[in-house]
Computed example of a mutant assay.
Amino acid sequence: MRGQRLPDWAHGVLARRVRHRRGGRRRAAPAALPGAPAQDWGRFFAAADRDPVLQQGVALAQQYAAEHVLVWLTGRPEHLRELTAAWLGAAGLPAELLFMRPANDRRPARDFKSRQLARLAKESPIEVVVDDDPEVVQRLRGLGYQVRLADWVPHSSTLGKAQEREGRT
Rank of each mutant, 00 (worst) to 15 (best):
Q116S: 07
G75A: 15
P102C: 09
R2P: 10
G57R: 06
H68Y: 12
E166D: 13
L80W: 09
R16M: 11
F44L: 06
P77S: 13
Q138G: 04
A61M: 08
R26D: 02
N104E: 12
F45M: 02
R141H: 12
R141G: 10
G23W: 03
V53P: 00
T158G: 13
R110I: 01
E67F: 14
R22P: 00
A29L: 00
P94F: 07
R5L: 13
A65M: 10
H20Y: 03
Q63V: 02
A48T: 05
T74Q: 08
Q62H: 15
L6S: 10
G57E: 01
L14E: 00
G24T: 00
A91C: 13
A28D: 05
A59Q: 09
R119V: 09
H11K: 13
P134G: 04
R115M: 14
Q116K: 13
A59G: 05
S157P: 06
F44Q: 04
W72L: 10
T169D: 06
E166V: 06
E127H: 10
A38G: 02
A85C: 15
G57A: 14
A31R: 02
E135V: 12
L88Y: 02
L60A: 12
D105W: 07
E166W: 15
A28N: 04
P77H: 15
R21D: 00
F112P: 00
Q63N: 05
T84K: 03
Y145M: 11
F44E: 01
E135M: 09
E82L: 07
M1F: 07
R25D: 00
R148F: 05
D51E: 03
W87V: 07
V58I: 09
K161C: 11
G92W: 13
Y64F: 14
G142R: 09
R5P: 01
A162V: 11
L93C: 12
Q163H: 14
D111N: 11
R168I: 07
R139N: 03
V53H: 00
M1H: 06
L83E: 15
